[in-house]
């Protein structure tokens, strides 16, 4: 059965990172990850775990709010993108199109600010507060490729 949504509970930033690592182990390159969640929810924290899973040193992953795009070379190339400073952004701003549709993994924080984002095939990752350090992480697949990815993630780690 195809699974569209897979939700997990995280008790700490450490566990949030662990989910990033787990997801990284399933990636092949060319995936688009759209992260959503309030300030301080743990989006960058999740990506630190993802980076670790791609054999990148975690301390290389800084908040890209200011630089907006950071490129990393791990097991697979990772584009870490942050749209926080942009109220409304379009694919052709900042050359985003090239970053989002490539052989690399594109992890985009504040994905909801991308005007054309809603209909794009992607793995949507929503992190919500569930207490001081507890969070709810929801993975949602948009498009067959990502529905399949979620099914494999759930089968392996649920």
């Amino acid at each position: 059965m195809d699974l569209e949504i897979f939700t997990v509970d995280s008790k700490s930033s450490r566990e949030t990172k662990a989910w990033g690592r787990r997801l990284a182990s399933m990636l092949e390159g060319g995936e688009l990850l759209g992260l959503e969640g309030d300030l301080g929810a743990g989006k960058t924290c999740f990506i630190k775990g993802l980076a670790h899973g791609l054999n990148l040193p975690e301390e290389q992953i800084l908040s890209p709010t200011f630089t907006m795009i950071q490129e990393h070379r791990g097991r697979l190339p990772l584009y870490h993108i942050d749209l926080y400073r942009l109220e409304r952004v379009e694919l052709d701003d900042l050359g985003l199109r090239e970053y989002l549709f490539s052989d690399a993994i594109a992890a985009v924080e504040w994905f909801e600010r991308l005007r054309e984002g809603g209909g794009m095939e992607r793995l949507a990752i929503r992190i919500e507060y569930a207490g001081t350090s507890a969070r709810k992480i929801e993975f949602r697949g948009v498009g067959q490729r990502y529905i399949g990815l979620i099914a494999r993630l759930a089968a392996r780690f649920a």
């Binding site: 300030l39 301080g40 960058t44 301390e59 800084l62 908040s63 709010t65 200011f66």
Partner: peptide, 17 residues
């Protein structure tokens, strides 16, 4: 150096919150 956010970014985000 910082391991996550820059200090100025922390100011802006805290103000937003």
């Amino acid at each position: 150096a910082t391991r996550d956010d820059a200090a100025g970014e922390a100011f802006d985000k805290a103000a937003k919150l």
